[in-house]
Amino acid sequence: MLSAILIMALGAVVLGAALGYAAIRFRVEGNPLVEKIDAILPQTQCGQCGYPGCKPYAEAIAEGEEINRCPPGGQEGVTKLADLLGREVKPLDIEERPKQTACIDEQRCIGCTLCIQACPVDAIVGAARQMHTVVSTLCTGCELCVTPCPVECIRMETIHEKIDNWKWKYPVFEMKRVA
Protein backbone atom coordinates (compact mmCIF):
# COMPACT_ATOMS: atom_id res chain seq x y z
CA MET A 1 0.00 0.00 0.00
CA LEU A 2 2.69 2.39 1.08
CA SER A 3 4.83 1.56 -1.92
CA ALA A 4 1.89 2.26 -4.22
CA ILE A 5 1.36 5.69 -2.69
CA LEU A 6 5.08 6.38 -2.85
CA ILE A 7 5.31 5.34 -6.46
CA MET A 8 2.37 7.48 -7.48
CA ALA A 9 3.66 10.44 -5.51
CA LEU A 10 7.10 10.00 -6.99
CA GLY A 11 5.65 9.84 -10.47
CA ALA A 12 3.57 12.91 -9.88
CA VAL A 13 6.55 14.85 -8.54
CA VAL A 14 8.91 13.79 -11.32
CA LEU A 15 6.45 14.43 -14.14
CA GLY A 16 5.20 17.65 -12.58
CA ALA A 17 8.75 18.91 -12.23
CA ALA A 18 9.53 17.97 -15.82
CA LEU A 19 6.41 19.71 -17.09
CA GLY A 20 7.00 22.78 -14.95
CA TYR A 21 10.56 23.05 -16.15
CA ALA A 22 9.45 22.61 -19.76
CA ALA A 23 6.77 25.28 -19.39
CA ILE A 24 9.43 27.80 -18.42
CA ARG A 25 12.17 26.51 -20.71
CA PHE A 26 9.96 26.29 -23.85
CA ARG A 27 7.67 29.26 -23.31
CA VAL A 28 6.36 30.76 -26.55
CA GLU A 29 4.92 34.25 -26.81
CA GLY A 30 1.74 34.92 -28.77
CA ASN A 31 -1.12 32.69 -29.67
CA PRO A 32 -1.09 31.42 -33.26
CA LEU A 33 -4.79 30.72 -32.97
CA VAL A 34 -5.57 34.45 -32.64
CA GLU A 35 -3.83 35.09 -35.96
CA LYS A 36 -5.89 32.39 -37.63
CA ILE A 37 -9.13 33.76 -36.23
CA ASP A 38 -8.14 37.28 -37.19
CA ALA A 39 -7.52 36.13 -40.75
CA ILE A 40 -11.15 34.96 -41.02
CA LEU A 41 -12.67 38.15 -39.58
CA PRO A 42 -13.57 40.73 -42.25
CA GLN A 43 -11.38 43.52 -40.82
CA THR A 44 -14.09 46.15 -41.02
CA GLN A 45 -13.03 47.26 -37.51
CA CYS A 46 -16.64 48.22 -36.96
CA GLY A 47 -16.94 47.20 -33.33
CA GLN A 48 -20.40 45.67 -33.81
CA CYS A 49 -19.15 42.66 -31.89
CA GLY A 50 -18.60 44.85 -28.86
CA TYR A 51 -14.84 44.82 -29.13
CA PRO A 52 -12.72 47.72 -30.40
CA GLY A 53 -11.66 46.15 -33.68
CA CYS A 54 -11.23 42.71 -35.21
CA LYS A 55 -8.02 41.70 -33.44
CA PRO A 56 -9.49 42.20 -29.93
CA TYR A 57 -12.51 40.14 -30.96
CA ALA A 58 -10.20 37.44 -32.32
CA GLU A 59 -8.42 37.38 -28.96
CA ALA A 60 -11.77 37.16 -27.20
CA ILE A 61 -12.86 34.24 -29.40
CA ALA A 62 -9.63 32.43 -28.62
CA GLU A 63 -10.52 32.92 -24.93
CA GLY A 64 -13.95 31.41 -25.48
CA GLU A 65 -16.22 34.27 -26.67
CA GLU A 66 -19.14 33.40 -28.96
CA ILE A 67 -18.33 33.22 -32.66
CA ASN A 68 -21.58 34.72 -33.93
CA ARG A 69 -21.00 38.35 -33.02
CA CYS A 70 -19.66 39.55 -36.37
CA PRO A 71 -22.41 40.72 -38.77
CA PRO A 72 -20.06 41.92 -41.56
CA GLY A 73 -18.48 38.46 -41.71
CA GLY A 74 -21.91 37.00 -42.32
CA GLN A 75 -23.07 33.45 -41.74
CA GLU A 76 -20.20 32.25 -43.91
CA GLY A 77 -17.73 33.79 -41.47
CA VAL A 78 -19.42 32.02 -38.56
CA THR A 79 -19.21 28.71 -40.43
CA LYS A 80 -15.51 29.21 -41.09
CA LEU A 81 -14.82 30.07 -37.45
CA ALA A 82 -16.81 27.03 -36.34
CA ASP A 83 -14.72 24.89 -38.70
CA LEU A 84 -11.47 26.29 -37.37
CA LEU A 85 -12.38 26.02 -33.71
CA GLY A 86 -14.46 22.86 -33.89
CA ARG A 87 -17.49 24.61 -32.39
CA GLU A 88 -21.15 24.52 -33.27
CA VAL A 89 -22.36 26.74 -36.10
CA LYS A 90 -24.74 29.33 -34.65
CA PRO A 91 -26.97 31.84 -36.37
CA LEU A 92 -25.71 35.43 -36.31
CA ASP A 93 -26.93 37.37 -33.29
CA ILE A 94 -27.60 40.45 -35.45
CA GLU A 95 -29.21 40.43 -38.86
CA GLU A 96 -26.88 40.26 -41.83
CA ARG A 97 -27.01 43.34 -44.06
CA PRO A 98 -25.80 43.96 -47.58
CA LYS A 99 -22.43 45.67 -47.90
CA GLN A 100 -22.51 49.42 -47.53
CA THR A 101 -20.26 52.38 -47.97
CA ALA A 102 -20.42 55.74 -46.21
CA CYS A 103 -21.27 58.82 -48.24
CA ILE A 104 -20.89 62.42 -47.07
CA ASP A 105 -23.42 65.01 -48.22
CA GLU A 106 -20.93 67.64 -49.27
CA GLN A 107 -23.48 70.45 -49.19
CA ARG A 108 -24.10 69.98 -45.50
CA CYS A 109 -20.62 69.04 -44.26
CA ILE A 110 -19.26 71.72 -41.92
CA GLY A 111 -15.72 70.39 -41.81
CA CYS A 112 -15.68 69.43 -38.13
CA THR A 113 -13.26 66.46 -38.60
CA LEU A 114 -15.22 64.37 -36.09
CA CYS A 115 -15.83 61.65 -38.67
CA ILE A 116 -12.16 61.65 -39.63
CA GLN A 117 -11.29 60.88 -36.04
CA ALA A 118 -13.92 58.16 -35.88
CA CYS A 119 -12.87 56.33 -39.06
CA PRO A 120 -10.85 53.26 -38.06
CA VAL A 121 -9.19 52.88 -41.45
CA ASP A 122 -8.47 56.53 -42.33
CA ALA A 123 -10.84 56.40 -45.27
CA ILE A 124 -12.15 59.96 -44.83
CA VAL A 125 -10.09 62.87 -46.10
CA GLY A 126 -10.57 66.53 -45.28
CA ALA A 127 -9.30 69.23 -42.96
CA ALA A 128 -10.77 71.53 -40.35
CA ARG A 129 -13.36 73.85 -41.89
CA GLN A 130 -12.85 72.18 -45.26
CA MET A 131 -15.21 69.74 -46.87
CA HIS A 132 -14.68 66.04 -46.12
CA THR A 133 -15.19 63.10 -48.39
CA VAL A 134 -15.07 59.32 -48.16
CA VAL A 135 -12.55 57.33 -50.16
CA SER A 136 -15.10 54.74 -51.15
CA THR A 137 -12.60 52.05 -52.17
CA LEU A 138 -11.15 52.08 -48.65
CA CYS A 139 -14.42 52.41 -46.74
CA THR A 140 -15.32 49.22 -44.88
CA GLY A 141 -18.92 50.29 -44.23
CA CYS A 142 -18.51 50.16 -40.43
CA GLU A 143 -20.91 53.08 -39.77
CA LEU A 144 -18.66 54.43 -37.01
CA CYS A 145 -18.60 57.84 -38.70
CA VAL A 146 -22.39 58.19 -38.84
CA THR A 147 -23.13 58.99 -35.18
CA PRO A 148 -20.31 61.49 -34.51
CA CYS A 149 -21.47 63.80 -37.32
CA PRO A 150 -23.16 66.83 -35.69
CA VAL A 151 -25.14 67.77 -38.82
CA GLU A 152 -26.13 64.25 -39.81
CA CYS A 153 -24.64 64.59 -43.26
CA ILE A 154 -23.26 61.02 -43.49
CA ARG A 155 -25.45 58.29 -44.84
CA MET A 156 -24.78 54.65 -45.63
CA GLU A 157 -25.32 53.55 -49.21
CA THR A 158 -25.74 49.97 -50.26
CA ILE A 159 -23.10 48.91 -52.76
CA HIS A 160 -24.92 48.11 -55.96
CA GLU A 161 -23.96 45.35 -58.31
CA LYS A 162 -21.79 46.52 -61.20
CA ILE A 163 -20.30 44.59 -64.09
CA ASP A 164 -16.98 44.45 -62.23
CA ASN A 165 -18.42 42.76 -59.17
CA TRP A 166 -21.26 40.91 -60.86
CA LYS A 167 -21.36 37.21 -60.12
CA TRP A 168 -22.74 34.30 -62.07
CA LYS A 169 -25.64 32.88 -60.15
CA TYR A 170 -25.81 29.38 -58.81
CA PRO A 171 -27.35 27.36 -61.64
CA VAL A 172 -30.89 26.38 -60.82
CA PHE A 173 -32.36 23.80 -63.14
CA GLU A 174 -35.24 21.50 -62.92
CA MET A 175 -34.15 18.05 -61.93
CA LYS A 176 -35.80 15.21 -63.75
CA ARG A 177 -38.69 13.87 -61.75
CA VAL A 178 -38.11 10.26 -60.84
CA ALA A 179 -41.16 8.16 -59.95
Partner: peptide
Protein backbone atom coordinates in the same frame (compact mmCIF):
# COMPACT_ATOMS: atom_id res chain seq x y z
CA UNK B 1 -18.61 30.17 -64.11
CA UNK B 2 -20.49 30.42 -60.85
CA UNK B 3 -17.55 28.99 -58.90
CA UNK B 4 -15.07 31.26 -60.66
CA UNK B 5 -16.98 34.44 -59.95
CA UNK B 6 -17.52 33.39 -56.33
CA UNK B 7 -13.80 32.81 -55.92
CA UNK B 8 -12.99 36.16 -57.50
CA UNK B 9 -15.44 37.86 -55.21
CA UNK B 10 -13.89 36.21 -52.16
CA UNK B 11 -10.44 37.24 -53.31
CA UNK B 12 -11.62 40.84 -53.66
CA UNK B 13 -13.08 40.72 -50.15
CA UNK B 14 -9.88 39.24 -48.79
CA UNK B 15 -7.81 41.94 -50.43
CA UNK B 16 -10.07 44.65 -49.04
CA UNK B 17 -9.88 43.08 -45.59
CA UNK B 18 -6.09 43.01 -45.75
CA UNK B 19 -5.96 46.67 -46.78
CA UNK B 20 -8.37 47.61 -44.01
CA UNK B 21 -6.34 45.68 -41.47
CA UNK B 22 -3.08 47.32 -42.52
CA UNK B 23 -4.67 50.77 -42.39
CA UNK B 24 -6.28 50.08 -39.02
CA UNK B 25 -3.00 48.92 -37.55
CA UNK B 26 -1.18 51.91 -39.00
CA UNK B 27 -3.76 54.24 -37.55
CA UNK B 28 -3.42 52.66 -34.13
Amino acid sequence: RYAKSEIWSRERDKKNADTAKARFEFRN
